[in-house]
Design a protein around this nucleic acid. Structure first.
Lengths: 344, 344
DNA sequence: GTGAAGAATGGAAACGTTTCCATCCGCCCT
DNA sequence: AGGGCGGATGGAAACGTTTCCATTCTTCAC
């Protein structure tokens, strides 16, 4: 019977006492560094197991002056595209024994900087993050100041030479518009997140514009909406009154695409018979709904994993300005069909 | 010009040196504990700001022997219902200055226990977690052993008296079936996660069964599927061949419901004209798709927040066996309509 | 003028690890 | 048989905080 029923977590000192050795020996045995007699190893392991000893990450990190932890900052975990990339980061991190500290901002700058402060205090060794606008972000400036390595995910800065992993948003958007044009659409509109607040939205808009110009088509209506605005009917109505209404809409992300389809149906328009819709992101639920969502697929999970990998390998080298372009694919879907015949 | 361009993170000692005071004073000033001359405070604050000093959480936690951190364990971040509850936990935690450490298991027991070990090593003060089966879970046994407080979310243990926050799954399922019966459905099937692996699935199945019995209806077909199985057509085919095919299907969660609708369409059946479908969870995308998804809504975000609150307030008291039942609502949707007339 | 009280501040210990260095011991080689 | 070598182990310092305790100094009452 154990006389000592100490009701606190066992420390290395407790293990050492029980095994009758020094803490140095315990540390060595448990970490497999240094040599030890088989009997010693046995004693130590038995003691550790008896006390269900779990080395404190805190003590370890303090001594080691490194945490083997990276921070992740995303606008929202409830947007599947971010959840997916976080999962990719976690996978890649776990593989090499790294932990992940996750923070979300809900698109709120105040929460963003608080989150960054928190991650910094936790001494993360680097960050993978997605910000609203990579060209003007106080958080990124902070990171530059303290020289903490970071890799942007999804963001594609236009001016600042910041390391990022993304798709070529302009080329990707062009692919969407070209596909629409090939299907006979001539009046192609865009539903986009606020340009002021999103470099992605700007890039995707640029691609849309360029593709239309190349195809000799006039730019259709552009509707800018806020992140959390999911009731879009009243925003679309004005553009669907005349005979010149668009036959296809390109949404700058999938959540927006879903909201758009919903709104079109509320307006009594059929998708894709009256209006086609294509999204951007490639979230999984898009495949499950009816009509299934046509979308430009970014490899979210792989992007997360790649971003982490860049961060890790770049820890020693120079991360500045490096960019990785991920491949994208256009996933066909029932929401994107041929232009209505009466309009050709 | 600063002569000292030390390229490492500033410590309290650096601040003390620069301000010309002791580290004790720095600590007191920055934490607002104890008294200090206005000039001293000014000097300290200036030095801290000059060096962009951020107190190390690691050092702080080690000394304080508490981390103000809770762990969260979910099967998957990419399932919106979990993402949503995690968001709720984060919100509630942030409000009282707690941090959140997130781990996901991907339904893999090995990953689960590794994740728990990790959280334990990080000295979380408690856990909010969702496991496959709360009645037989090695991870939970571990937590009981080390006496670390935890609250289950979504799980509703049948035997073990474990603290949990959930809806009354049986009553909720009954509500779904009763609604279906009221709409004239007589042959009501169920698509469920593996009973072996999920207490939720079992409870929901029990509610389905009980409601059918009460309504004097024969149990329709039950299809058990794996978590990540999203192609269901071949699983449904056998049950839709005879004239006795079900007119309504109750899916034990929303992802399953989406997959079911998809599969039905692949089989050439219309939803809801030929077959109605109702899910369970209340994920947001359900509202956006067409047909919109009828579903039993759990207040995911509030559940997360509540679970955290229980954990926090229970830290001192006794958590054992406490349960909080959250209110549920039945969200109507286009996927659930009246039974086809020819079948009445 | 003396003493006490209290404010301001500093010294030092402690938290749980890892790791450098020193010590001790047994063994092999000559 | 003696010297040296190397393996096993322990002591102690260090990481960055907070906080207890002690010290100094100011101020005020007698």
């Amino acid at each position: 019977m154990d006389r000592v029923a100490l009701d606190r977590v066992a420390t290395i000192r407790d293990v050492a006492a029980r095994a009758g050795v020094s803490i140095a020996t315990v540390s060595r045995v448990l970490n497999g560094s240094g040599n030890a007699t088989p009997e010693t190893m046995e004693k130590v392991r038995a003691a550790a197991s008896d006390l269900s000893f779990r080395p404190s990450t805190i003590g370890r990190n303090l001594k080691a002056a490194r945490t083997r932890t990276v921070g992740v900052l995303v606008p929202s975990l409830t947007n599947p595209v971010f959840a997916e990339s976080v999962a990719g980061i976690q996978d890649a991190a776990a593989e090499v024994g790294y932990s992940v500290l996750i923070a979300s901002t809900d698109y709120d700058p105040a929460r963003e900087s608080r989150a960054i402060e928190g991650l910094l205090s936790n001494r993360v060794e680097g960050l993978v993050l997605t910000v609203a606008d990579a060209d003007r972000s106080g958080s990124l400036d902070t990171l530059d100041e303290v020289r903490l390595p970071y890799v942007l995910a999804y963001n594609q800065p236009e001016r600042a030479p910041r390391a990022h992993v993304s798709v070529d948003n302009v080329a990707a958007s062009r692919a969407v518009v070209e596909r629409m044009a090939a299907l006979g659409h001539r009046r192609i509109g865009m539903i986009a997140g606020r340009f002021r607040q999103s470099d992605r939205s700007r890039r995707r808009h640029a691609g849309w514009q360029a593709a239309l110009a190349d195809a000799g088509l006039p730019p259709g209506p552009v509707v800018e909406v806020d992140f959390n605005e999911l009731r879009l009917a009243h925003r679309l109505t004005p553009h669907f009154e005349g005979p010149e209404r668009p036959t296809a809409l390109f949404a700058s992300n999938d959540m927006l695409a879903l909201a758009t389809i919903r709104a079109l149906r509320d307006l009594g328009l059929r998708v894709p018979d009256d209006v086609s819709v294509c999204g951007f992101d490639g979230i999984e639920v898009g495949r499950l709904m009816a009509p299934s969502l046509a979308t430009l697929v970014q490899p979210a999970r792989a992007m997360g994993a790649t971003a982490f990998e860049c961060l890790r390998t770049g820890f020693s080298g120079e991360l500045q300005g490096r960019a990785v372009m991920m491949p994208f694919t256009l996933r066909p879907g029932e929401s994107l069909g041929a232009a209505p015949s009466e309009s050709t």
